[in-house]
Structure formats: C-alpha cells, structure tokens
Simulated assay, not measured.
Amino acid sequence: MISELANKIFNQAITDYHQFDNIDQPVNNPYEKDSLTHLLYLKNWIDTAQWHMEDVVRNPTIDPVEGLKWKRRIDTQNQVRTDMVEFVDSYFLDIYKHIQANADAKINTESPAWAIDRLSILALKIYHMQEEAERETASEEHRLQCLTKLNVLLAQRDDLSLSIDELLADIEAGKKYMKVYKQMKMYNDPSLNPVLYNTTK
C-alpha cells in the first residue's frame, strides 16, 4: 500500500531532520534517485523545513526586517513544495498512462500527490503534537489536551491513508482517472502580481 510506505518514509524524514533541527541542513536522501521513495522523502523534508520556518517567522519579538526575509523565504519554499507535489503527480501519471479509464469513470476532488501532500503535513502535526503531549515542562492539563488532539490526528491519518489507497486502486481499475492542473501561483510571478509589475515601470 502506498500510504503505508509514505507514512513510514515521512516518519523517517522527520526523525532524520530532528537529529539536526537545522532548517539549512543539507538533505541526505537515502533512497535511489527518481524512485517514488526518494520523492516521498524529499517531499517531507521540504515540508519539515518549512514547518520550522513558519515557527521562526511567528516569533512576536522578531525584527521586522528579519521577519520579512523569512516571509520571502517561505514564499520561495512554498513554490518548491508545490513544484514537488506536481513532480510526484507526474510520477503517478506515468505509472497509470496505460490504464484505460472506464466509460463511467469519475475524477477525484484532488490528485494523488495532493492527497499525499496532506498526509505529509499530517505526519508533522502528529510528531509535534506528540512532543507537546509528552513535554515535561508543560502542565498536565496542556498534555492531556494535546493527547486528545493527537488521538484525533492519528484517526485522521488512518482515514486519509485508506482514502489514498482506495483512490489509487480505483485509478488502477479504471474507475477513476487522473487529471492534473498546475497550481499557477501568481504572487511570485512578476508578470502576474500587479504589485510587482507596477513597480518595474
């Protein structure tokens, strides 16, 4: 099952990242290049680094100039993350290119890679919520609240994992078909963001 593989690799990437806990730590991807496992590991590493960028920029005492630098870095990282999701979808499109969809096949609300993207973020939520549920410096009330939230997240992971596996099985069986739309983000494009193109005149 793809979800079982993805969850295992996401947990591995998160654990590997937190050995250093350094946003700029170079990625040491243990999987063969161009393999799905390589893509999944890299995808989650990108998400994990961005998770910690988001933590940094929310520091209420951060210098505004420094905060703006981080915001722009997060914008760039968002584009990297989007490109990575689309790359994973390209992998699935290639895998299923020979599948003949049934005449009554339906399209899913999201592509496989965007569902896997949610699973990657969920792995990060679970990791950090578990940290909070076990944090000795926190109050017992805080830990119990976080434990309750952790249990919800774990159930959500089970449900999402099953949904991803069912989606891929339906695509393989011709019951559903993939249709991928590029995200076409506009805010980083100087030809599409009016604030950017008006400043270049």
Results as ranks from 00 to 15, higher is better:
Ile2Thr: 08
Ser3Leu: 03
Leu5Trp: 05
Ala6Val: 06
Lys8Trp: 05
Ile9Cys: 10
Phe10Tyr: 15
Asn11Arg: 15
Ile14Gln: 14
Thr15Tyr: 12
Thr15Glu: 15
Asp16Cys: 14
Gln19Met: 10
Gln19Arg: 10
Gln19Thr: 10
Phe20Met: 09
Ile23Gln: 10
Pro26Cys: 05
Val27Gln: 14
Asn29Thr: 12
Pro30Lys: 01
Lys33Gly: 01
Lys33Ser: 05
Ser35His: 07
His38Cys: 09
Leu40Trp: 07
Leu40Pro: 14
Leu40Met: 11
Tyr41Asp: 09
Lys43Ser: 13
Asn44Ile: 03
Thr48His: 03
Thr48Trp: 00
Gln50Asn: 14
Asp55His: 06
Val56Gly: 02
Pro60Lys: 09
Thr61His: 02
Ile62Asp: 00
Pro64Arg: 08
Pro64Met: 01
Glu66Ser: 05
Trp70Tyr: 13
Arg72Pro: 01
Ile74Arg: 03
Thr76Cys: 00
Thr76Val: 06
Asn78Val: 13
Gln79Tyr: 02
Val80Tyr: 03
Phe87Ala: 09
Phe87Ser: 10
Val88Glu: 07
Ser90Gln: 10
Tyr91Phe: 15
Phe92Ser: 06
Asp94Ile: 05
Ile95Thr: 09
Ile95Asn: 09
Lys97Pro: 01
His98Lys: 15
His98Ser: 09
Ile99Phe: 10
Ala101Tyr: 04
Asn102Asp: 11
Asp104Lys: 09
Asp104Val: 00
Asp104Glu: 10
Ile107Val: 13
Asn108Lys: 11
Glu110Trp: 06
Ser111Pro: 14
Pro112Asp: 07
Ala113Trp: 04
Ala113Phe: 11
Trp114Phe: 10
Ala115Met: 03
Ile116Trp: 05
Arg118Asn: 12
Leu119Phe: 08
Ile121Ala: 04
Leu122Ser: 02
Ala123Gln: 08
Leu124Lys: 12
Leu124His: 09
Ile126Ala: 05
His128Cys: 01
His128Met: 03
Glu131Ile: 09
Glu131Ser: 04
Glu131His: 11
Glu132Gly: 13
Glu132Arg: 13
Glu132Val: 06
Ala133Cys: 06
Glu134Pro: 07
Thr137Phe: 10
Ala138Phe: 07
Glu140Asp: 12
Glu140Trp: 13
Leu144Lys: 12
Lys149Tyr: 06
Leu150Val: 04
Val152His: 15
Leu154His: 05
Leu154Asn: 12
Gln156Ala: 14
Gln156Ile: 07
Leu160Ser: 04
Leu162Gln: 14
Ser163Trp: 00
Ile164Phe: 00
Ile164Trp: 00
Ile164Gly: 01
Asp170Trp: 11
Asp170His: 03
Ile171Cys: 02
Gly174Leu: 04
Gly174Gln: 08
Lys175Tyr: 07
Lys175Asn: 12
Lys176Asn: 08
Lys176Glu: 07
Tyr177Asn: 06
Lys179Val: 14
Lys185His: 01
Lys185Glu: 01
Tyr187Asp: 12
Asp189Ala: 04
Pro190Ser: 15
Ser191Thr: 15
Ser191Phe: 06
Leu192Lys: 15
Asn193Arg: 13
Pro194Ser: 11
Val195Ile: 13
Tyr197Leu: 03
Thr199Glu: 10
